[in-house]
Write a protein that binds this DNA or RNA. Structure first.
Lengths: 340, 340
DNA sequence: CTTGGTTAGTAAACCGATTTATCATTTAAA
DNA sequence: TTTAAATGATAAATCGGTTTACTAACCAAG
């Protein structure tokens, strides 16, 4: 096991001080008036032996780790997985590494994860925050840590976030159902005080209200175990036979909803028209294909990482937090079209 | 911005040497014969002020980072996303953090990522390795780094891996199609020398050979861009009108295949019976539901992390590498049943 | 009375970088 | 001719821990 070489080894080999090596390697050669020829000699040798500074030591001294902490609800959810993938790419391109984890929307777990991230000295945070984590984030901000939220935000916390126009999205989707002639439209969502979920409910309510239609909302509890989502939906659909359309608040609920509908052998859209939030393969490939509210995942990821990198580079020049709202795209498919 | 307290602060406050604090915090109090009462006093104070040792400093000294590097093909692929999720959970429970990244099956990118991981001093590696990375892995092993592979392995590299019985899986699936009376069975796969893909092809060939049926294989090039996968499949299906069944080699290919079939308005299984490797919501929810070879993701993740943790704990006692092979489950659904 | 072994703990070295303060020379200015 | 500034580079301090080597005080045995 060859031991990695350190800056001292390089310094000794070249008969130069390690200070000098460090200056050169950090591009401070001119500033520190190191001669051209020495710079070249060092660079050549460093390249030759493939020396890489120990990043732990570097981080310890500088306080920067070149790491971003990414917290999503559940990395195995396709929405978060694709956002994570895009953020990963952009981050690596900019010299940052990602440490990620899934919060499961669990406040306590998230607190522990934040502690872990702090301890690891991550330079910045990207998160889809669970409820109840406000104080911890405020503490983070007070200590000067950049925090960018996405998918949702915390109203009590004044930080950057990238979101979509949730209210309009469900308003528009509901509107679409109404325009198709549906009169008994249900909304199935997670029981949640999170901003995005509240807006989604509100958009649905607004649209119904504008047409004087009756609301019918089912709230299920967020859970990793699908059965605990499928069961209440089954109940709900069984008990509400007059429903002619249903709007699902997230891809996960939508997927579970489709499973229920399939199990109950209901026909889409004849028995029940369907729209779901978030678009992905399951909806595209379903027969009939399911109308879905597509989030602009690339744009979200781009904006998130751009905002964060800006904050990381602009040291201390506290700009005030930005909030970015992006548009969604209602992908209209057969599942929400009234058939004659 | 309150600065975090260090071990020296604690030592000063308690009028005790930092060495002692360190010993106590690392559970070496008895071994170092520190008095019960001092241990208690220190522990109490540490808890009180919420002191956490700086893990960078710790890692720098000890050489251990409590971090595992996880490299998958593409974190946004549901198979890898769910494995990653499960590994994440187990790792955190055991005090390890995960740094992950997607290789895109790109050798060069993977090399860079390995360099990055080394530099970060990860304690161990979990990976679904791309081709051509043999030497880099061997170098890793030579330096005593634990490496566990999953999904596939590198025949030239002698290290632990967790796999499934690929050959039998496709053999069995093909057999199932043959038993249902299909005679023109195609196999669509990635052009790849990876062990798992080669075994999958072989299983298919073996089954056909046993029944004296003709092979019909399409190899598409691995690519992030779906269109480049959809196009050749469309071509293939258009040109091979006699096909009555097709077996897709991965979930990604299967999904693309379904898109093609849907676009061509072929009826499953009347025009074409379908089986895909990997099971997930798209296949379960498809109409008709698609027969799929389900990998035991939990078992895979469990085994991977168990093997790795064993290696991490068993310092230096070089056990010889294990190779674990798990069984898959052919979920038979209507898409592969001959309809009369 | 010396030697040796516990006991309970600490000072100092170390991990591998960055950063600050400093130091010979040489050159330019007064 | 003396002083000041510029040049080119370095020694030492630092980040916050862990580990090694050592010590002071006490007691028991020879």
């Amino acid at each position: 096991m060859k031991k990695k070489l350190s800056i001292v080894d390089i310094a000794n080999q070249l008969n130069v001080s390690k200070t000098t090596i460090s200056f050169i390697l950090n591009g401070r050669a001119k500033e520190k008036r190191i001669s051209e020829e020495l710079v070249e000699r060092v660079m050549k040798y460093v390249k030759e032996v493939g020396y890489k500074p120990n990043s732990l030591a570097k981080s310890l001294r500088t306080g920067k780790s070149n790491t971003i902490g990414l917290m999503v609800e559940d990395i195995s959810n396709p929405f978060f997985a694709s956002i994570a993938r895009l953020i990963e790419d952009r981050a690596y391109k900019n010299g940052y590494k990602i440490i990620y984890c899934s919060t499961d929307n669990d406040t306590h777990k998230t607190q522990e994860l934040i502690t872990m991230f702090r301890d690891r000295h991550v330079d910045g945070y990207i998160m889809a925050p669970p409820e109840g984590i406000e104080e911890d984030i405020i503490a983070l901000l007070k200590d000067g840590m950049p925090v960018v939220m996405f998918d949702r935000h915390l109203p009590m916390v004044n930080t950057d976030y990238v979101e979509i126009d949730n209210l309009f999205s469900t308003y528009n989707a509901t509107r679409h159902l109404i325009d198709q002639g549906y009169k008994n439209i249900a909304f199935v969502t997670f029981a949640s005080e999170q901003t995005q979920m509240k807006s989604r409910v509100q958009g649905y309510k607004d649209a119904l209200g504008a047409s004087n239609l009756k609301q019918n909302i089912l709230e299920v509890v967020f859970n990793q175990n699908e059965d605990l989502i499928i069961e209440p939906i089954t109940d709900f659909l069984t008990k509400n036979k007059k429903l002619d359309a249903v709007l699902f608040g997230t891809n996960h609920i939508g997927t579970c909803g489709l499973k229920v509908i399939s199990a109950m052998e209901l026909s889409i859209p004849k028995d029940l028209a369907v729209i779901s939030f978030d678009d992905y393969d399951v909806f595209k490939l379903h027969s009939p294909p399911v109308t879905a509210i597509a989030q602009p995942v690339e744009e979200i990821a781009d904006n998130v990482i751009t905002v964060l990198l800006n904050k990381l580079n602009a040291r201390m020049e506290a700009q005030r937090p930005q909030s970015i709202t992006l548009k969604t795209d209602l992908k209209i498919r057969k599942s929400s079209l009234k058939i004659k």
